[in-house]
């Protein structure tokens, strides 16, 4: 394989990875705080490009304004889903919350079918995103560059929020111990809402960039990327935000390079990803950046 081709694939992997990174943060933050695999997160991701699509088509908003509105609406959806479906179950057995998450996932998926119809829609790409940059032999779509830049910006904002603001401190403290945090005066409900808002907003950015990259949107589009982003979160160390980013980038890279190096086996790409998940779970369940916890006997 030529150097150029390798660079081309690396660029591809990096940009796909940046999308996984954006989605996986929502999983990891929610798991860190509620110990819940939010099965509905993939559907949150799917809603954002639809919001943008209709913002442009029906409300004739400029693309950038529609982009912001879509992120806002998705964040609100995330907050509402937590309020309605997870908060009443805060004290319930964890399996009930998981079933609730499956319920939300089915609800959003089918609501999308009802409202947006099940037929795939082609996602409008502003001209800027159609440009192709040429670096010597390497041709890179501007979408790819945009995903890397946009996701990096959002990830930096996130890191700032988590480690430098009071809300971030509250988030970190309730992920260690909800009850103690409550006693120390942390507003638990508000912080959890905020966590869902951030996770959903990042998934929204991911979803829109996904729509630009694979310019078709449909109600079931969140299932696979959602599942894989969750895998990325596990690989990085579930509950660990930098871990989720790292896991996302690694997963994107691995997927692209797998297909590049083993084109004959490309049909097994997702099986390969799942195998990595299982190996990580068996040999390093705490993930790459997570900490080991042992049950006290």
């Amino acid at each position: 394989m030529s150097l150029n081709l390798i660079l081309q694939n690396l660029a591809n992997g990096l940009s796909l990875g940046s999308l996984y990174a954006l989605i996986s943060i929502g999983y990891t933050m929610v798991y860190g705080i509620l110990r819940l695999i939010n099965f509905a997160h993939g559907e949150i991701f799917m809603l954002a490009p639809y919001f943008l699509y209709y913002g442009v088509l029906i409300f004739h908003l400029p693309w950038w304004a529609s982009f912001l509105v879509a992120i806002l609406l998705t964040a609100v959806t995330g907050i509402v889903s937590e309020r309605v479906a997870y908060r009443p179950l805060r004290e319930a057995p964890r399996i009930s919350v998981l079933i609730s998450a499956i319920g939300v996932s089915y609800f959003l998926q089918n609501l999308a079918i009802v409202v947006f119809s099940g037929i795939p829609k082609s996602f409008h790409r502003p001209n800027f995103f159609k440009t192709i940059f040429q670096f010597g032999e390497i041709r890179i779509q501007s979408t790819l560059i945009a995903s890397v830049i946009v996701s990096t910006i959002f990830l930096i904002i996130l890191i700032y929020i988590i480690y430098k603001t009071k809300t971030g401190l509250a988030m970190r403290s309730i992920s260690v111990d909800i009850e103690t945090s409550r006693l120390m005066g942390v507003n638990v409900n508000r912080t959890i809402s905020f966590t869902f808002a951030i996770g959903s907003a990042l998934a929204a950015v991911g979803g829109i960039l996904w729509g630009l990259r694979f310019p078709q949107i449909y109600p079931l589009m969140g299932m696979m990327p959602g599942l894989k982003a969750f895998i990325a979160a596990v690989v990085g160390g579930i509950g660990n935000v930098p871990g989720a980013m790292l896991g996302g980038f690694l997963l994107g890279m691995v997927e692209i390079l797998y297909v590049a190096f083993l084109p004959a086996l490309s049909g097994y790409r997702d099986a390969f990803v799942f195998s990595i998940l299982i190996l990580i779970l068996l040999f390093r369940p705490e993930g790459i950046l997570g900490k080991k916890v042992q049950e006290k006997v």
């Binding site: 309605v84 479906a85 009443p88 179950l89 319930a92 057995p93 009930s96 079933i99 609730s100 499956i102 319920g103 939300v104 089915y106 609800f107 998926q109 089918n110 609501l111 999308a112 079918i113 009802v114 119809s117 099940g118 109600p219």
Partner: peptide, 22 residues
């Protein structure tokens, strides 16, 4: 005819059951 409405109704009822009868 509205495709999807069946599953929407179903998921709402599922949520109600799980929230009110854990």
């Amino acid at each position: 005819e509205i495709p999807g409405l069946r599953m929407v109704t179903f998921s709402i009822l599922l949520l109600l059951v799980i929230i009110f009868r854990q």
